[in-house]
């Protein structure tokens, strides 16, 4: 990685053939399994700026991603800080931008400040393209893609091996994420 690429944002854009409200609703759905987000459940008190964000396993036992809401502009923009609970890397920022266009919604996922040369950076790059592709499939077809289903299955199998530090009791909603 060159020094110039260190803090450059990464963009993942796709056109979803659905109205913007429908995409927004799918993206911000709470307390329900999100097939496009590696079958996590978005757990929080609200989506207002400053509110905590926790991406939990379907049974609530484990928390994979933590952060805090930065911006909320329904149905156009939503952003939050982002940290993997199993890694000690610095936090980065994830933004979701929605734009109504002819034939559907232009959906862009932006990853900002991914720490260069870390596992977080690597996971964000492969995760970004999977999330936009799986969200498109979920919204357009109304069912999870094959990859989403496969990930759900693998997650269920590997949960006994999830590190202790990912247990949800270690990540209460009032814990500050640095």
């Amino acid at each position: 990685m060159t020094a110039t690429s260190k803090n450059q944002p990464q963009y993942f854009r796709v056109v979803i053939e659905a109205p913007i409200e429908r995409v927004w609703e799918a993206l911000t759905q709470r307390d329900q399994v999100l097939p496009f987000f590696f079958n996590s459940v978005l757990h929080t008190t609200s989506l207002a700026p400053g509110a905590p964000v926790r991406m939990r396993s379907p049974n609530g036992k484990f928390t994979g991603v933590v952060g805090e809401v930065l911006e909320l502009e329904p149905p156009f923009k939503y952003s939050h800080t982002f940290k993997f609970t199993n890694l000690d890397d610095p936090i980065c920022v994830v933004e979701y931008e929605l734009k109504s266009i002819e034939g559907g919604t232009e959906f862009t996922l932006v990853v900002r400040d991914a720490p260069a040369g870390t596992k977080t950076e690597k996971y964000m790059l492969s995760g970004g393209k999977m999330i936009v592709a799986a969200l498109k499939h979920w919204v357009e077809k109304g069912r999870p893609s094959f990859t989403s289903r496969l990930i759900g299955f693998v997650n269920a199998l590997s949960s006994p091996f999830t590190p202790r530090k990912c247990r949800s009791e270690n990540w209460p909603l009032d814990k500050k994420i640095k």
């Binding site: 450059q8 944002p9 990464q10 963009y11 993942f12 854009r13 796709v14 056109v15 862009t108 393209k129 999977m130 936009v132 592709a133 990859t147």
Partner: peptide
């Protein structure tokens, strides 16, 4: 075809690669 995304920043226009259309072919 969305293989790149052009973002205005001040007077400059920054260009970014968007891998998603290639991922769609792969999938």
């Amino acid at each position: 075809c969305q293989l790149i995304i052009v973002k205005k920043s001040g007077r400059k226009r920054a260009v970014f690669f968007n891998v998603v259309p290639i991922q769609a072919i792969y999938d």
